[in-house]
Design a protein around this nucleic acid. Structure first.
Lengths: 229, 229
DNA sequence: TGACAAAGTGTCATTTCTACACTATTATTA
DNA sequence: TAATAATAGTGTAGAAATGACACTTTGTCA
């Protein structure tokens, strides 16, 4: 079967930059390509958009096919369209980004992916295509966004300590924050709910566990509340 | 001539949302389509990306062809890809947005545009394709961006009064600002240079004219300065 | 039971924000 | 030429937010 057009058409792909947090490090999910071009190289999960498929749906499908990751929230990041970014033909790629809790998801490679794994953003192998650029763009976005949208909570377990939350912000923003000031600000927003529980199996005083109250957040939003860290 | 592919390919277009400021109103540049589909309807300037052409270059080319607007700074806005957004075939459109000073540019329609004109964003005719969505996205973007990037200056003449600047912010943000607080904040940033000149031909005390000092701004940026209004 | 490790807590000085009203200047008009 | 109309231009004080800073509490483990 073949498809003919009066004018040349580019191919369109989607790519997904999924961030995760693993103890101390910010990570991204990569797959090792099992097909040419760039066979054996690491890249962001992604692939061709089907002709009647919405972009976001294509991204979710590819993500699931290649890594097993399912049902996560994707946000459009940027569209990469340099004419020579793919050696096969003109390929325009719509990149998405997402946050995921590493422990909640079991990654497993499939279809065009030989392998799938989380990599520390500070230690990324050489990437296929222009995916290095995509990574840079995604890091800028997450850094810019984390301060004024409560997206960070997606990276943590449902119940988390204030120290974990502070650590997350310090990791993404790449600067230290004052413990007391951080707590004052976060708790003052009235977005966190105490679970009444504390950490288990730690060799020191156990910290209180909180959960993010999305309903409260949405209610505050309607009243003009602005999240800011 | 025809082009054949093993798999179906979407077409890719670019669209440009150009904002301008005319006295009291925020405007956008629209063209009236001279060809099907949506012949006679108003739409954002744009068109098909050539097979070896970067996206931004395509946007600049279409903008110039259809409206005469030349050499303005475009920023990628969002990519619109719903499968049925174009009745002809699957078309994925990469939208850009830009700011322009209306008085500096003479608009003239050409090629596929029967007409080109500025429209008050509060009073937009029915638009072709999903361009209403594109407009909404662009308005959100400019509103979100104007407060923390000094983009507003692009909309004003080179020399402008503080009242013009304040009015611009009030128009985009859709809320009133306090005159004294606004002046204190803007002047305190040390980004504006007094020209020494004043307004001409006004029936009241003439206001001082300022210009935006981009060199100073870039220097401050390097020192970690954050613009915020 | 003492040492260790992290949790949890308050204050003060500085800066920033907000709300608010009158005088100065210029062109126009009576 | 004096009065009027229109906008320019200016300061302050109270409230809120920020940033810097160190010790006590609680639990585990040796």
């Amino acid at each position: 079967m073949s498809y003919t057009y009066e004018y040349p058409h580019p191919a369109v792909t989607v790519d997904c930059v999924v961030f995760g947090l693993d103890d101390d490090d910010l990570k991204v999910l990569l797959i090792q390509r099992d097909i040419d071009p760039f066979e054996g190289k690491w890249a962001f999960p992604g692939g061709f958009v089907e002709i009647d498929e919405p972009l976001e749906k294509a991204a979710l499908r590819e993500l699931k096919e290649e890594t097993g990751l399912n049902k996560i929230f994707l946000e459009q990041l940027y569209t990469f369209g340099k004419p020579d970014r793919d050696p096969r033909e003109r390929v325009i790629s719509v990149a998405f980004f997402a946050l995921a809790n590493i422990r909640d998801h079991r990654i497993k490679a499939a279809t065009d992916a030989r392998n799938a794994a989380w990599f520390d953003v500070k230690n990324i192998p050489a990437l296929a295509f222009d995916h290095q650029n995509i990574l840079i763009t995604a890091l800028e976005r997450i850094k810019g966004k984390v301060s004024y949208q409560p997206i960070g909570f997606e990276l943590l377990p449902k119940k988390f300590t204030l120290n974990q939350l502070q650590h997350l912000y310090e990791t993404i923003l790449e600067r230290p924050l004052d413990k007391r000031n951080f707590r004052r600000k976060i708790l003052g927003m009235d977005l966190l709910e105490e679970t009444g529980e504390t950490e288990k199996n730690v060799a020191h005083r156990a910290a209180r566990l909180y959960r993010f109250d999305k309903i409260k957040y949405n209610a505050l939003l309607k009243k003009g509340f602005i999240f800011e860290v």
